[in-house]
Design a protein around this nucleic acid. Sequence first.
DNA 1: CAAGAATGTGAACTATTGCTCAGTTTCTCA
DNA 2: TGAGAAACTGAGCAATAGTTCACATTCTTG
Lengths: 194, 194
Amino acid sequence: MVGNIEPRKRGRQSRAKATEDAIVEAVARFLEEVGLEPLTTNKIAERAGVSIGSLYQYFPNKEAILVALIRRERSLLLADVAAIADSGASPQEKIERLVGAGIKHQFARPRLALALEYVERTVNLGEEAQDLERLLSEAVSGIVYLQFPGAGSHAPRDVVAMAQALINSSAMAGETDLQALRSRITKAVYGYLG
Amino acid sequence: MVGNIEPRKRGRQSRAKATEDAIVEAVARFLEEVGLEPLTTNKIAERAGVSIGSLYQYFPNKEAILVALIRRERSLLLADVAAIADSGASPQEKIERLVGAGIKHQFARPRLALALEYVERTVNLGEEAQDLERLLSEAVSGIVYLQFPGAGSHAPRDVVAMAQALINSSAMAGETDLQALRSRITKAVYGYLG
DNA sequence: CAAGAATGTGAACTATTGCTCAGTTTCTCA
DNA sequence: TGAGAAACTGAGCAATAGTTCACATTCTTG
């Protein structure tokens, strides 16, 4: 299952793009509803409403589809985080918004976010997905050090881990009061950093 | 009446117990060194130095071995946590020790702890493993509310999630200064609760 | 020791996996 | 319109999965 993770063919027609998207989205839904272990290429194709042959026209193997999904999700989050970093808001405001972005992202598809958390550590992300991860990490670090210049070297990593854990825990418990969650996280983060 | 006056013939059980333990431990090592997805019953048997037939004499299927492993690990942690809860220490001291127990547990076998975190959410834990989980959760709740009687209803769950995330993050980054980690976690916990 | 119980063995079966490929359908555009 | 390009199809292949079972070995005990 190790190998090239690039699409075999660059889709030129919109039909191709739609098929590719359908495949990635099918994996997302399967991870949400069933799980990682029973995920097979044939089931992916079936859910996507596509033949198994088509699937392998767009992805060289199963892992590549997971990586594409990770890339898709990470891009969404990165866009929000980058916008916050580049905004003219105060450092404190940026941190607040960062927490909000994390909540929004994970609450959008909680089970998917949880499943991908494991997949990300398991799968060999390609260069592109690793770049996203790096950009994301740098953006967060920048914001954290802006507000807490004296924070330790693992502060950004820890803050992300903490927030992620709190959000997950809350989402899986079915909470809906996101304002309350947001203030709990902010409290924990400032307690840790300040 | 089979009043369970078990003679417990020495040799009769020790060989069987050793085989069962070897199987469970083989899974633990495989999860640490390789991962969940490539885990197969034949590989488990091979690592345990046992035939595949023997494996199925002790466990009805692969999942059951994972559950047995989870039970083993949870029991270790529960023993420590219960001892802390039953000790005569002050509430604050109990919280300190609780954090210490979490660190000790996850740092003992970090990769295993991480892998099991995912498995626990995936696999259907039996009644016995669920009981352990419940007891653990109750013990932690008791300690948390002792020190923070006014804490919200999800405080114990959140504190555990936070601490777990910080420890994981630290362990996977290869940190060794456990005292520093402990104080960081305590800070985050008190920041969140206080 | 003898004999039954407990424990251990591994070839082999079935189902399923990831994946291929020879061929068909649909689209594009001169 | 028709012919080449793009997209799609699905039966089927080799590999591997989980699991079974008929049999061998080792232990316990009268």
